[in-house]
Computed example of a mutant assay.
Amino acid sequence: MSHRVYRVAVIGTGRIASTLEDDPYRTHPCTHAGAYALCPNTQMVAVCGRSREKLDRFTARWGVRAQYTDFREMLAREKPDIVSICVHPTLHKDMVLAACENQVKAIFCEKPIATTLEDARVMVDACRRHGTKLIINHSRRWGNIYHEARRLINDGLIGDLLHITGYCQGSMPRRGLIPDSVFETEGPMLHDGTHLYDMFRFFAGEVAWVQAHVQWVKRQAMEDTCVNYVAFKNGVTAVGFVNQRTDYVRFELEFQGTEGRITLPDFSVWRSRPSSRFEGYRELYLDETIKKPEDNNWFVDAVREIVACIEEDRDSISTGEDGLAALEMIEGFYRSEKQGGRRIALPLVD
């Protein structure tokens, strides 16, 4: 990596842009601004938001000299190399298109990529045509534990991968921490389930078809809970449990192979060997020789990779196409529910 410093502009002043750094329990940095501040190759030069009060707090905290309330004006005047988009996904498309038109080199866009497939496709196409790197913040793609687990699976440590089970529960912030409008346009599948579906693809590849049971129990605009079934082109299957009805947060993955299993994020590896309880059978035993990889900061490594993608002219490990694929799975789940649980083939043709 060179010693060049890239000019960064941030659109948004909220939680994932900056204020989650106030959470004393999180690993820091845990925001776009926090990661840019620690990277020697990036310098934040401008921020855009709707509230002057929040803009003032952002600029004071991060030493950013310029603030704007119009993202188009900011992009035209500042000509940043990198833009972070940290606002509601219904606003992503116009911001991505404006960044492309202003020759931005890379866009670090929050998940989900958009709320409609049409918007997402327009975004991906525009970035490809303009040569702009579009990186979607499905943050676990930069996690050491997920890369090492995938390596072990691909190396055959647990035999052939058969099934993945995933849980994403209770992860939407409570009302008051985020605008009420979010609860009317994003259910748990869009808000955080997108991380789970992206991880399914990260480990199992391209999807053949999806199926779902989606429920609207307490919430009227968006779903409360859903059970998702995913069949991959390589024969692997996955089941996801995503809801906003638990009073606790849970994100877990289990990988079942023909000769063992791995669970994340605890990184437990269970391997098959002759049973000590039943003659002629094999059981799973915890392999304590396989240690959990050293923790890394996903946000910092994401920013480092963005710089590398610019300098090496390569795609990210979390591309716009990956974001589009996750959104397509979610749209497939909704369509499956509307059609009585029917299988929906991917990619969608309309």
Rank of each mutant, 00 (worst) to 15 (best):
M44R: 04
Q67T: 13
T27W: 05
F232S: 11
I158P: 03
R277K: 15
E53V: 14
P179Q: 07
W62C: 10
V96T: 10
R140F: 12
H163R: 14
L91K: 09
H130T: 13
V210N: 02
I145W: 07
D23K: 09
D322G: 03
L346R: 07
T27S: 11
K291Y: 00
A9S: 15
R77K: 15
R314F: 03
D56R: 14
H138P: 04
T165C: 05
G12H: 01
D350C: 03
H92V: 04
E252I: 01
N137M: 06
A46D: 09
E73L: 13
T289A: 13
T132G: 06
S171F: 11
N144W: 05
Y248E: 12
T185G: 01
L324V: 01
L55T: 10
V83I: 12
R343L: 08
M123G: 06
R335L: 11
A208R: 14
F255G: 07
V96M: 05
F200H: 15
K93I: 01
V249R: 10
P173V: 05
R4K: 14
D315W: 09
R261A: 12
M199V: 07
D247K: 08
K133W: 01
T289F: 04
P40I: 06
I330L: 06
R282A: 08
V8C: 14
L152C: 02
A126L: 03
R121L: 03
A208W: 02
G63F: 04
P40A: 03
R245C: 06
P274C: 09
S275C: 11
C168A: 10
L286D: 05
Q169C: 11
W298E: 13
S276T: 12
G34P: 02
E148V: 09
R141V: 12
Y248G: 02
D266M: 04
I136S: 08
D155A: 12
V87P: 04
H138F: 13
M199H: 00
